[in-house]
């Protein structure tokens, strides 16, 4: 490696880097220097515009930025920003089943998020299956549906299928020899109570968002 030569070990040391290359090779290296510099600056500019708030440039060239950044350089570092999440959103499920005897019945609501929380509790290394799976599936659903629970495009459809599959998987084994007919999900949102040391008061009454029944 030419670092050794630079140490002066070799007779007639070749200058370090590009200066030590003979003519044509130096041209190649110079072209590469230019290309690499442009590529690095371009990439950083695109990533910067991707994480920056909507601005004059992104309004005009948003498509270029998106085309560069998605899907592999996508990133979101608004961790707990601008404000941290201030409410616990629990996802609950209930099911309509046909029992072995042929009777139809509807189960009670079951708090899946509480089950996640139990799996996280006192764990140094919580699993993504407990921490992210349901939580992010619900985020995905709410971000791809309007207030009337109407799906928006392919993502809406995907998120419904995903949530339903999570619900079915978690209900597995709870209805014995019966048959699972339909599932329904709802979220129960409770604000985190205001700190004891603050004068604020927060309404911690739960609010509900109920999704339609889905036939399995």
């Amino acid at each position: 490696m030419d670092s050794n030569e630079r140490e002066g070990a070799a007779p007639g040391p070749r200058p370090a880097g590009i200066a030590g290359l003979p003519g044509p090779y130096r041209v190649v290296a110079a072209l590469a220097l230019g290309a690499v510099s442009v590529a690095a600056c371009w990439h950083l500019a695109m990533v910067f515009l991707h994480v920056a708030p909507s601005n004059t440039v992104t309004k005009r060239h948003g498509a270029t930025v998106d085309a560069w950044v998605y899907p592999e350089f996508e990133q979101n570092w608004k961790l707990f920003a601008p404000n941290p999440l201030q409410q616990n959103i629990a996802v609950e499920v209930r099911a309509q089943i046909r029992t072995e005897a042929g009777e139809r019945l509807t189960t009670d609501w079951r708090d899946l998020s509480a089950e996640d929380a139990r799996r996280i509790r006192h764990q140094l290394l919580p699993s993504h299956t407990a921490q992210n799976e349901l939580r992010r599936a619900w985020d995905f659903y709410t971000s791809s549906h309007d207030e009337d629970e109407k799906p928006q495009g392919e993502r809406g459809a995907l998120s419904e299928a995903y949530l339903q599959r999570i619900a079915v998987a978690r209900l597995a084994g709870t209805y014995g020899a019966g048959e699972l007919l339909r599932v329904q999900l709802r979220s129960v949102t409770r604000a985190v109570a205001a700190p004891r040391w603050s004068t604020e008061t927060t309404d911690t009454a739960p609010s509900y968002r109920e999704l339609p029944w889905w036939t399995v």
Partner: peptide
């Protein structure tokens, strides 16, 4: 105070 982020 978030259930998903309070292992302890």
């Amino acid at each position: 105070g978030l259930d998903y982020f309070t292992p302890w």
